[in-house]
Amino acid sequence: MEYVIIIISAIFVNNIVLAKFLGICPFLGVSNKVETSVGMSGAVLFVITIATIVTYLLMHYVLIPLNIGYMQTVAYILVIAALVQMVEIILKKVSPSLYQALGVFLPLITTNCAILGVAILVIQNEYNLLESVVFAIANAVGFALALIVFAGIRESLDLVDLPKGMKGAPIALVVAGILALAFMGFAGIV
């Protein structure tokens, strides 16, 4: 039951993009086409899960025993940057087709604050390892949901006649606002 609550809360109620404002850069940056947004979502799901497991173990088996919990930010960002590079190299060798699909998005992910944000939130919420993994995957699914729906809307937005000043980023932000408004309807479920 706890896991169900974590999943529903992370996907709908506290959606990582529309309620917690993490991962806005890729949300605005790669949402022009549904196809690319699916690729980005896949890459995020992949990296966020591995990064959460690795940073969780790092926190509980290295930083806390050594009593240097304040090194969290420095240690995490280094681990995530190294991890993304490593995933890229391994994917290239092991699964070229998956690499082709996700390849271009992987370097972008290092500076995606959703990854670091989830890794820190897991520690703040005092989840155990299994809960952390569930939380990470649910957040990635929430990210994918918001991104793909948004990309679908933006594709048809190209056909709309807009005032000059609103073209591009401004109308995208207003649409994201309406989407966030819709997601607010989920508040109170859990």
Binding site: P170, I171, L173, V174, A176, G177, I178, M184
Partner: peptide
């Protein structure tokens, strides 16, 4: 109240950028 909540952030920034674009033109 909506402007203090999450959707208001998107709306306010969207319209502020619109105004900035207009002034820049």
């Amino acid at each position: 109240l909506v402007f203090v909540l999450a959707p208001g952030a998107f709306f306010a920034l969207g319209y502020l950028i619109t105004i900035m674009n207009k002034l820049a033109k």
